[in-house]
Design a protein around this nucleic acid. Structure first.
Length: 379
DNA sequence: ATGTCC
């Protein structure tokens, strides 16, 4: 067990194995971030990779102060899973792909007007609701490929003969605006627990969490309506946030920067669009700050993907994956940035999580159709 | 990551 949770210093550890790809830049960022005042425990997940100053795929515990800059711009980013009424064996992939081509990521204003409750309709960022966005966000139809625990899978409300819908998105422009306003006043320094500035940030942050959960629900609702299917939400968890937490009996603040909570029941650890995803039951993981990987994690920087892949693959070729799934993405740059080759293998990440005793796999999910329909971007 | 720098 201890072999998979590896110490880097007194306060810092990371979950890894000999077969896992971890960039030295990422562990360097992990150690740097651990030096912030008040930081007492830092754990890198197996999907750890370098970010802008702070690494992605890690959990950070601090006392007395917390750090909005560490949470980042996408406050409330997370994963929602829906059971759909689409029968797996009846799916015609060509037809499904064609139907998805006519889906636009931005929700029509008249649709939003009818769909939003009054509290959300009045929100300044209401126009973003129901849209997936860019970067690593996606909506994906998945087939239940293997079930390892029938009872747990049924208890979640899953019908293994019907497709699942996984939505990965966040608070869109809202979180961006909250971070920008914070950094303008306080740069990257922390906020003192209980101060007016801290309470003000937390109020905005919590609004963004609610907004992000609603966004994922509206994405699912729009997609299900588009395919004329029914659906039911099975789970929804945030992996970018800061929350009160007690570590070794000491109250403080847990920052999740791409770190899925292990304390909210079963969750999905998604692989890249060309790889499997795993539905898992989290196990006790106080050593890992009650956190899990939030995906496979990047292997290549965004800026190097097109150069490494465009000579070998056309965008049309990358719209079909090794597992037979289809990808809808109108942004030619993103097709390369989000290619399966740019990500670690999900098996290598899962080996670390199971090896460290952090999860029990419940089912393996195979991608069928991945949607990333954000608009054209030239270069 | 982003109602993304016009």
């Amino acid at each position: 067990m201890g072999n998979f949770i590896r110490p880097l210093s007194d306060a810092v550890a990371y979950v890894a194995s000999d077969d896992l790809w971890i960039e030295s830049d990422a562990t360097r960022q992990l150690l740097n971030t651990a030096r912030l005042p008040g930081m007492t425990r830092v754990v890198g997940m197996p999907d750890l990779h370098p970010g802008r100053g702070y690494p992605v795929g890690a959990a950070f515990f601090s006392v007395n102060h917390f750090y909005p800059a560490l949470v980042g711009n996408d406050i409330g980013c997370g994963m929602g899973l829906w059971q759909t009424s689409l029968q797996s064996r009846k799916v015609n992939l060509d037809k499904l792909e064609k139907r998805a081509q006519s889906y636009s990521d931005a929700a029509p204003p008249e649709w939003l007007e009818a769909a939003l409750p009054p509290t959300l309709a009045a929100h300044p960022y209401a126009a973003s609701l129901g849209s997936v966005g860019g970067g690593n966000h996606f909506a994906e139809l998945q087939q239940v490929e293997s079930v390892y625990d029938d009872e747990a899978v049924s208890a979640l409300g899953i019908n293994a003969k019907q497709l699942l819908l996984l939505a990965h998105s966040g608070s869109r422009g809202l979180g961006q605006q909250i971070l920008r306003a914070h950094v303008e006043r306080f740069s990257h320094s922390g906020l003192e627990e209980g101060s007016d500035a801290a309470n003000d940030y937390l109020a905005q942050h919590n609004d963004a969490l609610t907004f992000a959960v609603a966004n994922r629900a509206l994405i699912a609702r729009r997609l299900l309506e588009h395919f004329r299917e029914e659906g039911e939400r099975l789970l929804d968890v945030n992996h970018n946030l800061v929350e009160p937490y007690v570590f070794n009996g000491q109250p403080g603040w847990l920052h999740r920067k791409g770190a899925t909570p292990a304390s909210c029941g079963p969750v999905v650890i998604p692989g890249s669009r060309g790889d499997y995803s795993y539905l898992v039951q989290p196990l006790n993981s106080g050593d890992a700050l009650d956190s899990l990987a939030h995906g496979a994690g990047r292997k290549w920087m965004r800026t190097e993907c097109k150069g490494r892949l465009s000579g070998k693959f056309s965008p049309a070729q990358l719209a079909r994956t090794p597992l037979g799934s289809r990808v809808i993405c109108r942004d030619r740059q993103l097709i390369y940035e989000e290619a399966p080759q740019a990500y670690k293998s999900i098996e290598s990440v899962m080996e670390c999580l199971t090896g460290a005793g952090l999860v029990k796999p419940l089912a393996r999910l195979k991608p069928v159709l991945t949607l990333k329909t954000s608009g054209e971007r030239s270069e």
